[in-house]
Amino acid sequence: MKTLEIKNLHVSVEDKEILKGIDLVVNEGEVHALMGPNGNGKSTLLAAIMGNPKYTITEGSILYDGQNVLEMPVNERSKAGLFLAMQYPQEIAGVTNSDFLRAAMNVRREKPVSLFTFIKEIEKSINELQMDENLAHRFLNEGFSGGEKKRNEIVQMKLLKPSMAMLDEIDSGLDVDAIQLVAQALTDLKNETNMAMIVVSHYDRFLELIQPSFTHVLVNGRIIVEGGPELFKKIDDEGYDWIYKEYDVEPAAQDGKRRALNTLGTCAVRETVNGSKK
């Protein structure tokens, strides 16, 4: 059984410590929801697992399937089965989705995927996610809307079939119908491959569809409280304030002054535009 094991993980960005000792175990086939106010380390944790060079691991370990992930370059982590559906997927001009995905499929196989198989698989995924039928020939994410980019992350995931999928706010930027489509695609893939998932989301609607069995709440770089699905439902109803009181913690302030959100449905963009709630 493939297991992700994180022990006492400390991560810094530009000398500022973001994660202050994370312990987390995710077994094959399990779905974990990672929650917490904005700016408190959820994306950092996923990026650190994937190997984003902007983040420095100062202490702790990450093992996946018994291998020391921290010693592996980013591409080897991907080939080991890790996949991060990013919050802000990059646009790569000049490289078509099709060339990119075929290359990504081929690096994890001994024999290159045949053109016929590739076209069949990508067309199936494009149809399932109701994307532009010319997607394969368009440049990677270039000129895509926010929602298209997110759905394209799932197209990639379906073709690469990871054993550990990490989803960083994949539901933001998606309308109600698209959330349903993405959740269905993820559920199908999970049923097919028994992949594990770590899902960062602010939306109860999405989590209800994905059905996580475990919930972890990250506040100021530490997992403060853990539980089952009842925990994300409680947070959806009551926000985070009860956690701050009960566990005597303060969320990390954003930009030195902003207090963390206290409702589940507030998105970071709206927060930035309207100012934070006090």
């Binding site: 994937m50 190997g51 984003n52 060079p53 370059p73 980013v74 591409n75 982590r77 991907s78 080939k79 996949f83 991060l84 990013m86 997927p89 990059q90 790569i92 490289v95 990119f100 995905l101 290359a103 990504a104 690096v107 994890r108 990639q156 690469l160």
Partner: peptide, 16 residues
Amino acid sequence: EDQLYYMMSRGLSIED
């Protein structure tokens, strides 16, 4: 660098 990280996160080496 962000583009490189994104592409590598799908399994491609720097050379790829």
